[in-house]
């Protein structure tokens, strides 16, 4: 049962394309689990289609249609879907197809943050945001930390809880800057999450040198 969904403004930003790529990925991941939000997304695109035709129009140049037909005939700009090598990390089998397709080929670069928490970065070519997978062992606790930037988490498998509640697969959780929390996984199953971080988090009680999200830069 999914209890947490992206807020309506985020959904509109998603539909209109103003979200950064990493956030867009987080919302699409939620949509893999949530039919209600999928329907909302389709309707929000309908609005785009309506507004498109009710907005201004500007004449295009005379030769444009001919140029398009030339391109079509020459086969230029043909859409060729490059054959993507699949991620061979075992974790990929446990994730929605959409998420495993985004993962790099080969094995993920898992880094141990604590005895029960591991993180693997997923590169999407953006500098301002960090997209990553988190794994918490069954019953494991993540270190208490606070957020300097906004963090979005989507539960992919298993469940975790914190002071505010229990989160199930598909749940879309937003942490605002300044939030402090201490997530822990359900006892009987490991928990895998996708997360987007706007600015590095800082672990409370640990030296910032240990801040895992600063270690993403090549070292």
């Amino acid at each position: 049962m999914i209890n947490r969904h992206p807020e309506s403004d985020l959904m509109v930003e998603y539909a209109t394309g103003s979200l950064p790529l990493a956030h867009t990925i987080a919302v699409t991941t939620h949509l893999q689990f949530c039919e209600e939000c999928r329907n909302t997304t389709e309707s929000l695109k309908d609005i785009g289609g309506d507004l498109l035709q009710s907005g201004e129009s500007i004449e295009v140049s005379d030769g444009l249609l001919d140029r398009i037909f030339d391109c079509i005939e020459s086969g230029k700009d043909e859409i060729s879907a490059p054959l993507k090598k699949l991620c061979s990390d075992k974790v990929a089998n446990d994730l929605p197809g959409y998420v495993s397709n985004l993962l790099p080929e080969g094995n993920l670069d898992w880094r141990k943050l604590t005895s029960s928490l591991r993180v693997a970065p997923v590169s999407v070519g953006e500098q301002d945001y960090e997209l990553s997978l988190h794994r918490i062992n069954p019953g494991g606790k993540a270190p208490k930390h606070y957020h300097r930037g906004r963090e979005i988490t989507v539960v992919l498998k298993g469940s975790f809880s914190d002071e505010d509640g229990v989160y199930q697969p598909g749940d879309f959780i937003v942490r605002e800057p300044g939030d402090t929390h201490r997530p822990f996984a359900t006892r009987n199953e490991e928990c895998i999450c996708l997360s987007v971080l706007e600015a590095p988090i800082r672990l409370t009680g640990l030296k910032s040198v240990l801040n895992p999200f600063l270690s993403f830069s090549p070292s």
Binding site: P6, M11, E36, T40, D162, G165, Y167, F172, I173, E176
Partner: peptide, 22 residues
């Protein structure tokens, strides 16, 4: 969104914020 009946979820309808600590 509510007015256009796109807020299918009760959370949208009641204006309850989502995302835990949001």
């Amino acid at each position: 969104l509510n007015k256009m009946k796109l807020g299918l979820m009760p959370a949208y309808k009641e204006g309850i914020t989502q995302g835990g600590s949001y």
